[in-house]
Amino acid sequence: MSKEKFSESDEEAFLDDPDELDPEAEEYSDEAIEADELQALKAENGELKDRLLRALADVENVRKRGDRDRRDAELYASTRFARDLLSVHDNFDRALDNITDELRDTAPGLIEGIELTQRDLLNVFEKHKIVRVEPSPGEKFDPKQHQAMFEAPVPGTKAGDIIQVMNVGFMIGERLLRPAQVGVSAGGPATPAPEQDISGE
């Protein structure tokens, strides 16, 4: 039986012919490559989705911060000017507090003009979210809104109770523009201890 010998050209032709390759091996190789590519694409898609969600969240946070800063700028831009106007309000209060019944009878038009001007000033304050902080005697002292000008023992009161309002305060929005100036009770006077009889009788 004679053995057939292949020439180099026959061997190259055999190796280059795709029909001569194992079709099952080629199909398995293609499926493995496709599975790897699919896995890589899924991982890349998940990463891109995560980055997109983070970017959208950052944009939303920037938008909310911008809106809040804009509202704060509108509300608090006039803080210094409003604080300067408080002395005008105080002067109106002092003027009205010193009006006597005789003066009201003598110059009712003048008194009415002062009251209307002060009322107009308070309306402007309200328009710009500026409100009075006006505690009443007996309320509890609040260091966030009140400023203690003095402390004194007062019978029938508890320590920390407001006993006198010397000047009203003001808030602008949620910020304190000026604390209300108040007097605070140090509590009732201490009860003196009974005298002890040391005579021995």
Rank of each mutant, 00 (worst) to 15 (best):
E34V: 01
L56S: 09
I114N: 03
K158T: 02
G183F: 03
G188Q: 04
D105C: 01
V165M: 10
S136N: 09
K129R: 08
D58H: 11
L41G: 00
D161S: 06
R132M: 13
M166K: 04
L52D: 06
E126V: 02
D161V: 02
S136F: 08
E44D: 11
I99S: 03
F170C: 15
D22Y: 12
G187F: 01
A148G: 08
Q164S: 13
L41P: 00
V168E: 14
L116M: 13
Q196T: 15
E20P: 00
R132L: 13
K64Y: 04
L52Y: 07
G200N: 09
P194C: 11
Q39N: 11
A186W: 07
I33A: 11
E60N: 13
L21P: 14
I33V: 12
R63P: 00
S185I: 06
S87C: 04
S9A: 15
P23M: 01
G156A: 01
K144V: 05
S9V: 10
I111A: 15
M149L: 11
T100Y: 04
M171S: 09
F6Y: 15
K42M: 14
G138M: 04
Q118T: 03
F14Q: 08
D50L: 04
D97H: 09
K127M: 13
G138F: 02
G183M: 05
A57L: 09
K49I: 04
D17Q: 01
A55N: 15
T100A: 07
L176P: 00
V124Y: 09
E139Y: 00
K3F: 13
V124T: 11
R68C: 10
E8F: 12
A43S: 01
P194E: 15
A25D: 10
E112M: 03
E27W: 07
G113H: 08
A180N: 10
V154W: 08
E37C: 01
V131T: 15
V131D: 10
T106M: 15
E26V: 03
Q181C: 08
Q118F: 06
A186E: 15
M1L: 13
Q118V: 05
Q181I: 14
V88P: 00
L177Q: 12
M166R: 06
L56M: 08
E4H: 13
V59M: 14
V184W: 00
F170W: 11
E74K: 10
L38K: 11
R80H: 13
Y76H: 05
D69R: 08
R51M: 02
F141V: 04
P194H: 11
E27C: 04
E26R: 08
K5D: 08
R132N: 10
S136I: 11
L176R: 03
M149A: 12
P192S: 12
V184R: 03
K144L: 10
Q196H: 06
A73R: 01
D50H: 07
E34T: 03
E24M: 03
I114F: 02
V133Y: 00
F6D: 14
P135F: 06
I198F: 14
D105W: 06
G113K: 05
R51P: 00
A95M: 14
E31Y: 00
D90H: 09
P189T: 10
